[in-house]
């Protein structure tokens, strides 16, 4: 080879596992933890207060968002710093269609999917041809653009946002209790896990890994790296869009400030915390994200500072996350 590309991923094992969380590396211990947690998730509404349910609903919601972003970051190895934009696209689609046009909530979901796909293609199409760094910064800009547009248009309610979004109903049964939404988001999170798992273990999932490990070799094997990355980017966008629809329905009000850059960073943090690319890891990360500030309430506004320090320490000392991917 005339020149070894300096960008070629170096996949030598970086630090890997170890440290105080080593007991999580055993397969048996992981299984026990998982079973207990699954039971807890199923029967939680029977035993807990509304406050706990509210927090847990948010946690499932973040599980879905983080799994969506994980497809982009964990599977395809692309850094997306404007993921909240897709979440915003979904939320505003539902908000606008239900409150301005009286469209049924369930019909807004396909519309949101469509818009998310369009947004994903417009942003991803040109930038995915370039070095991955460009994508990071363009998505950052895109996140800002979407927020500024939402702030400045009349149809999105300007800076104060949209209020009075109708709650959805299924067969005449209106979803209005917190435990309804708990189960809605639990189901969504499970669905997200299922889809992620199936995608990861498929032709497309393998292609993401090839491209992540060595773009040139993947291309030499006949893989269109731009198309493969675009798939990841767009599928991630759909996850975010759908999550946004349900978010709007649950909150009944949305405002541009929900979709600030910090939101995108939080979601990314969830993906990084538990270990990129691995579904249980991402779930752990999403929960850590939501539960941490609830447990340490005194931290207040400096929680992002703490998160950022944790993120730096993880990247430096446990780069594969708390719950890293296992390889024989």
């Amino acid at each position: 080879m005339a020149r070894i590309d300096s960008a070629a991923p170096k996949t030598g094992d970086v630090a890997g596992t170890g440290g105080p969380l080593r007991w999580l590396d055993s397969q048996k211990n992981r299984l026990i933890v998982l079973t207990v947690l699954a039971f807890l998730a199923m029967f939680l509404p029977l035993i807990s207060s509304n406050y706990v349910l509210e927090v847990m609903t948010t946690a499932w919601f973040y599980v879905m968002l983080c799994l969506g972003l994980n497809i982009v970051v964990g599977y395809a190895g692309l850094l997306d710093l404007g993921y909240a934009a897709f979440f915003a696209v979904g939320a505003y689609t539902t908000g606008i269609l239900t409150s301005h046009f009286g469209v049924n909530f369930w019909l807004t979901i396909p519309a949101a999917v469509l818009f998310s796909i369009c947004a994903g293609v417009i942003i991803g199409g040109p930038t995915l041809r370039l070095r991955s760094d460009y994508l990071a910064i363009v998505t950052l800009g895109f996140g800002e653009i979407v927020r500024i547009i939402a702030r400045n248009l009349e149809i999105t309610g300007g800076a104060s946002g949209l209020i009075g979004i109708e709650k959805p109903s299924i067969f005449g049964f209106e979803l209005n209790q917190i435990f309804h939404f708990y189960y809605v988001f639990l189901i969504l999170a499970c669905l997200a896990c299922f889809v992620s798992y199936r995608l990861q273990h498929s032709r497309l999932g393998r292609a993401w890994q090839y491209v992540r490990e060595d773009e040139d070799a993947a291309e030499a094997m006949g893989i269109d790296r731009v198309a493969v990355k675009l798939y990841a980017y767009v599928i991630g966008a759909i996850f975010g869009g759908v999550a946004g629809c349900f978010f709007a329905a649950k909150m009944t009000a949305i405002s541009p400030e929900t979709f600030m850059f910090q939101q995108s960073v939080l979601i990314l943090l969830g993906v990084v915390l538990g270990g990129m690319g691995k579904i249980p890891g991402v779930i752990v990360g999403a929960f850590a994200l939501v539960l941490f500030p609830e447990v340490f309430r005194d931290l207040g506004s400096s929680r992002i500072l703490v998160f950022a320090i944790v993120m730096l320490v993880i990247m430096l000392y446990r780069p594969k996350g708390i719950w890293p991917e296992k390889k024989s």
Binding site: F194, V195, R198, L199, H201, S202, R203, L204, G205, R206, A207, Y210, M221, G222, I223, Y231, I235
Partner: peptide, 12 residues
Amino acid sequence: HCRTRSGPLGAI
């Protein structure tokens, strides 16, 4: 990869 064609829907 280049001799096969199943996409995301097939995978899911």
